[in-house]
Design a protein around this nucleic acid. Structure first.
Lengths: 353, 353
DNA sequence: TTGAAAGCGCTAACAC
DNA sequence: GTGTTAGCGCTTTCAA
């Protein structure tokens, strides 16, 4: 009834007091190192029982301060809306769940300053490792990620996923086979009879997009088709109300009619383009479209889909990071995961939610 | 060249030493309390400069241990794939970004034990607050969330979002107007000429679904239509390969033909149903569908959409939580946010990604 | 105005 | 086998 505000949280000290032994012994036993330090079975037993009875849980912050470890992983995404975020996250979670790590997540909302700040914040909060999906601003060719300097001098292990910043040659990363996937998609379009194949993309100077464009070119050449200045359509704006795909398609007549096949490097752009073309052209004039990204469940777009290994990318990134955290070996690990191409009408497992 | 391993991290102590004053003074000044403690302007100036020069950053864990605050918010989602997660997250982030909080996120993957564990873990990690989107297992009518006990005895403020567990009457929560939205959607179907309106839903005993079902009934009665045992179709499985919508639609002929309007309580289910019905029936026999959830960009489903205020729900939940964290007032805050109904063919802002 | 010192609760090197 | 003790780096009360 008096100032019993504090239910006197059970601490190591409390336990030690109750048992009449020292904090050290208790700590050792509770960590499972009892045998290694040859603490008598009897003592161990008593400690365990008492801890159980008192519902002792070691204070996280105190331990973290002492060990400088937080069992927390930081993850930086460019944006929440990218559908691959949830898939990657699933993969990442599945790995870290086992080891009792928590995930601290932040998105940069397409703003490099925020991205920078978020990375700084995570390092400040002492995450044990970092998974980074870098954001690359559109149409700035020589953009340098300012956080690269920060990262270069941190002890905290990190791994890039999906796309790379500049100079990532000797760092850890997991990406997908953008080049090969684009190449194959072009071949598939060719097999379907397309002879005037174009490629449409946002003009992002990031590795994944670059690789897709290169893969496209290689595919075109591999099929013996000509490559012209009109083969690749680069969009400089993501804003639908300005000089982007809508405007281009409406103004440039030939753009609407000169292709019988189109490789589109991102899903959203593909859906929009498909939507516009279907509106603008008679059905038999709409080019065959191949695109990166999976269609939403239960919507048949009639496009060739390049399915990216997002869940696996998450798993791989998490595993690499865990390895770097646990082992002192800092030699870079780099992986390229395979995509899968789903042909038009090919059976795509159905999901329900 | 020698054992200079440690670049001797700058600490309060270091600074104090360099300046020839005490830690206290430095700490006070750096926290901005210099004036309040009437520390001389000159000293303050010196401290600030020195801290700047040395690039001093207070150690997060040490401060957290001392203050028992982590500037971290825990968020529990049932699953990453629910599209509303990314929208809510956007809202939540927008609020906490300002105040320099980090977000620790975990998903329970439709498993109540994991959900429980995750909450426990977040409390253990000393999050300053918790946003919970509870998972409710399908078809278990009397399910009790075991974490309610845990929460009842924690000091950590928390707020429920989107749906409520049992006994949430006196807790903080933000939900949406499921009842009214369902009711209105039914009226809209009626206005469109539907006279045999059914409702299809997963059989989840959670507040949001219950409210939608009640809203449906109320709407039906409001329109003067009869309510029969066949008005509501409850599905007990989410597994598409078992006795769920697919099976029901294929086996039960009348199910396919007895409705001219359908209210469906979740987006994924609606898309699947629409897909199946369009396949099974001639176009003029497919019932008009109203459903919760927004269609994917650039896909016209021809359904009435009930757009839920997900971003705002995130914002509201975050604000409430922040308020509870900063103020000692613990009286519950509860809000119901409005949904918006988009009629078939109504212009829906287009996005590009 | 400023400083000393007692925490916060745990870890780990070292002593007995 | 078990205990002592010095950190980890910051906050905060109290005294000067």
């Amino acid at each position: 009834m008096t100032n019993q505000k504090k239910p006197t949280k059970t601490t190591l000290q409390t336990l030690a007091g109750k048992l009449g032994i020292s904090k050290t012994t208790v700590s050792l036993v509770l960590k499972g190192d009892g045998d290694r330090y040859r603490i008598s079975r009897k003592t161990q037993q008593r400690v365990l029982e008492c801890a159980e009875k008192e519902g002792f849980v070691p204070d996280f912050l105190a331990r973290a301060l002492a060990t400088n470890k937080t069992a927390t992983i930081g993850i930086i995404f460019p944006d929440v809306h990218e559908s691959f975020m949830s898939e990657m996250l699933k993969g990442i979670e599945s790995v870290f769940y086992e080891s009792d790590y928590s995930l601290m997540i932040s998105t940069s909302g397409f703003d490099t300053e925020i991205e920078d700040r978020n990375i700084r914040q995570m390092l400040h909060k002492k995450v044990d490792g970092l998974i980074l999906v870098p954001y690359v601003p559109i149409a700035r060719n020589n953009y340098k990620h300012s956080y690269m300097k920060l990262l270069s001098k941190t002890d905290c292990p990190f791994v890039f996923a999906d796309r790379l910043p500049e100079n990532a040659g000797s760092l850890n990363w997991i990406i997908q086979d953008d080049f090969e996937a684009a190449e194959k998609a072009v071949c598939l379009l060719f097999e379907k009879g397309c002879r005037s194949i174009g490629c449409m993309s946002f003009n992002l100077s990031t590795s994944s997009i670059n690789n897709r464009l290169e893969g496209f070119k290689s595919g075109i050449e591999g099929c013996g088709l000509p490559l012209s200045s009109r083969s690749i359509i680069l969009l400089d704006r993501q804003d639908p109300h300005s000089d982007d795909i809508t405007g281009r398609l409406l103004r440039d007549n030939s753009l609407r009619t000169e292709y019988d096949g189109l490789l589109i490097t991102t899903g959203g752009l593909a859906h929009k383009t498909g939507y516009l073309l279907r509106k603008a052209l008679p059905a038999d004039k709409v080019p065959v479209i191949a695109k990166f990204g999976r269609d939403p469940d239960y919507f048949d777009t009639g496009m060739i889909q390049i399915i990216q290994p997002n869940v696996n990318m998450g798993i791989a990134a998490a595993r690499v990071l865990l390895d770097k955290i646990l082992n002192r070996d800092r030699s870079p690990i780099q992986k390229i995961l395979k995509s899968r191409i789903i042909d038009i009408g090919e059976k795509n497992e159905e999901k329900c939610n």
